[in-house]
Write a protein that binds this DNA or RNA. Sequence first.
DNA 1: TAGATTGTTAATCGATTAACAATC
DNA 2: TAGATTGTTAATCGATTAACAATC
Lengths: 184, 184
Amino acid sequence: MAPTATQCSSDQIAEGAGVTAAQVRKDLSFLGSHGTRGVGYDIDDLMAQIREVLGMTRIHRVAIVGAGNLGEAITNYRGFENWGFEIAAIVDVDDAKLGTLVNGLFVEPLDALGAIVEDREISIGIIATPPSAAQDVADRLMGAGVKSILNLAPVVLKTPEDVSVRRVDLSTELGILAYHLARV
Amino acid sequence: MAPTATQCSSDQIAEGAGVTAAQVRKDLSFLGSHGTRGVGYDIDDLMAQIREVLGMTRIHRVAIVGAGNLGEAITNYRGFENWGFEIAAIVDVDDAKLGTLVNGLFVEPLDALGAIVEDREISIGIIATPPSAAQDVADRLMGAGVKSILNLAPVVLKTPEDVSVRRVDLSTELGILAYHLARV
DNA sequence: TAGATTGTTAATCGATTAACAATC
DNA sequence: TAGATTGTTAATCGATTAACAATC
């Protein structure tokens, strides 16, 4: 596929995504039928469809809790904007960090989190704190109306059913790799 | 479950892990039968079994590639040691970072990666670089004999079948949350 | 024995794959 | 028309759940 191509086949998409072509067609059919038989999918059209279905046509504002290395790394990460995510706040419990500038944002106090979420209409919270603080942070986020949480702390959060939580735990990932290692 | 309990039931484990009790029993039965009917599982015994099966009785040495915020965050992360992972090196392509101390490790040059991996018997590589550098880094790791890679860069790596790759992509996670948001 | 909880089977569910008619 | 590739169906596979006999 030349970089200038405007069409691409399920085979090409599969190659790039590391899955099978059948998988790609099946999944894309879920969006409705936007491919052309004998030709493939129009890339721009497809991107627009996906953005639409994933709710990425709206901007989602994100609050990062925890201004340690991880919180800073995420705040500096440029890959979010293209997908409609805007980091609107970074807060920390440590007074020493207040006012530090991270990617154009001042670190604000954890106690202001509730007000910040409401004022700036933040819909997603990212928890980048030590595990011991994670549940408290989740409670604060939910108390302010946040229904979507990305939890990077290695704990299972207690949350009601209407709150979506994604957990990313690097130790678990390493554990899976170690398992494979042991089997070779 | 009191913190001092030495036994716990599949129900209690399920509660803590956020899954069902049936799931827990099914999965644990894969390790062999180590529970006691009417009583539960012995925690210490279970931990030892899991460590054994996951290959965590051996120490696995890890190399971090990329000494940006993310690489530093991981190097500073204390949660790995308990599971037998030892961060043995952190390398970066940027000369300005060489010699910087991160959690007791000096940042070393990317070009030394191959030699470092072989000298220190590193078995796992963590890629914390910008996406453009990720494939090159993966090739270097594999060239030095690494068969397990944790890829934090938002690209799909081209790797042979005998190499295990885990990919963690925060944008994807946010995308999933956005999808749920759009549905509420 | 009575109560509790495992280990395992069978049923269910959902996701992946293969195959091919439809059609550009 | 001939070639290519989608969209969809049916088959397969694997994972989850429910249920309960085994047994501490």
